[in-house]
């Protein structure tokens, strides 16, 4: 598919915000997220003919954004293995009502604390509403692995959210946060 100027601008305006938010969750820095977002769209502009199906443009952008991030993160440990169980802690429950009341930047900060291996599928799940099969295709990992990471990432996020939502006076006494063992789901 050839991406014309008009189509390109339409795609940019339709998707740049979500791509930026995804990039921000990866880089944790606004300036780097802006660069990563621009780079993703630049690659679309220069290699857009490779995207065969217009309906898949957004997936292509997220995948490209992630690949460009990985390309720049040469020091990254690809498969960290975390040997701890989910810690059950007494924290305020993270509910939809509480999330509605919280600031968006607090949510973003909380998401940034989720381990990267889980954060990426979780962000794709929430930003794009992708099903696990699409996420598996985007990240080029087995479906079972994505399901495992998604479930555990969401659980990690839930506990971190509860921690973020608790009153500041309790913050000192709170545990360091959830730690999760990754296991493949078959």
């Amino acid at each position: 598919m050839s991406v014309t100027d008009q189509e390109f601008e339409q795609v940019v305006r339709g998707h740049y915000a979500d791509v930026f938010r995804f990039a921000l969750s990866l880089t944790k820095r606004e300036a780097e997220a802006c660069d990563l977002t621009q780079e993703s769209f630049y690659l679309l502009g220069s290699k857009g003919r490779r995207v065969e199906d217009a309906s898949k443009l957004k997936s292509w952008l997220f995948t490209t954004c992630y690949r460009e991030f990985l390309r720049d993160e040469r020091h990254r440990v690809r498969f960290p293995h975390i040997e701890l169980s989910l810690v059950e802690v007494e924290l305020p429950e993270a509910t939809a009502e509480r999330v509605h009341e919280m600031d968006a930047h607090v949510l973003m900060e909380t998401l940034e604390k989720v381990d990267e291996i889980y954060r990426v599928p979780v962000m794709l799940f929430y930003l794009k509403g992708q099903a696990y099969k699409e996420i598996a295709a985007a990240l080029a990992v087995p479906i079972g692995t994505v399901m495992s990471r998604l479930a555990r990432g969401k659980e990690q996020l839930r506990v971190l959210l509860a921690k973020a939502l608790q009153p500041r006076t309790d913050a000192v006494a709170a545990p360091a946060g959830p730690t999760i063992r990754e296991r493949p789901y078959e």
Partner: peptide, 8 residues
């Protein structure tokens, strides 16, 4: 809520 994260 993620849709409210500010974009530069």
């Amino acid at each position: 809520k993620l849709q409210h994260v500010r974009v530069p």
